[in-house]
């Protein structure tokens, strides 16, 4: 605040305008429910993106995490949270119906469920796979594992146990 008081009025006005613009211009994409200025969002409009690959995330910020990997070239669907009846959140409070309708319409090859690896994220993934299964679409889940460049010695037992369960054949 003291910094702003020392700046010209124009700077304060610019900041105020930017905040108002954020509220006015930023909206949810009507297809994937990501945060965007244009509807549909850049990812949904990008013809280079694989339209047959759909990644389900809990929150819009998860998209940015996955985009930073540059390893995913499909589209997204934002649920708006995870299922947690103890907090009053069921499928009806999330964009589950929209997801099922979109799958029926787009008929993707694969749905990747990228919810967090905790009790709620796992339940949400299991629930979605039950709903999607009848459509015959392949449903996958992100693998659990060790951080790259990490040290076995520092991994917590839970992660290490999961990494052991999900081990790959080398030879």
């Amino acid at each position: 605040m003291f910094h702003l008081l020392n700046r010209p009025r124009a700077d304060a006005q610019a900041l105020a305008d930017a905040i108002v613009a954020l509220k006015d211009r930023v909206q949810l994409c009507s297809r994937c429910f990501a945060i965007t200025e244009d509807d549909p969002c850049d990812i949904c409009c990008d013809p280079q993106r694989d339209a047959a690959l759909l990644c389900v995330v809990a929150e819009p910020k998860d998209i940015y995490a996955l985009e930073r990997t540059a390893a995913y070239n499909g589209r997204y669907h934002v649920l708006g949270g995870v299922i947690a009846p103890m907090d009053g959140i069921g499928p009806a409070q999330l964009r589950v119906r929209e997801l099922i309708e979109r799958i029926a319409l787009d008929d993707p090859r694969e749905v990747v469920v990228a919810t967090n690896p905790n009790a709620e994220g796992e339940a949400t993934a299991l629930y979605l796979s039950r709903l999607i299964a009848p459509s015959g679409v392949r449903v996958t889940r992100l693998a659990y594992g060790l951080p790259i460049g990490g040290d076995l010695d520092y991994a917590d037992e839970g992660t290490l146990a999961k990494a052991l369960e999900g081990r790959r054949v080398l030879a």
Binding site: I83, A84, L126, Y127, R130, L131
Partner: peptide
């Protein structure tokens, strides 16, 4: 805890969700 909340009616009844909790 979540399964009990579902059965108690904290959210709309949903058989698939109950089965998902059973799997989990």
């Amino acid at each position: 805890g979540h399964k009990a909340a579902l059965l108690r009616g904290a959210v709309a009844p949903d058989r698939d969700l109950l089965l998902a909790y059973n799997d989990e």
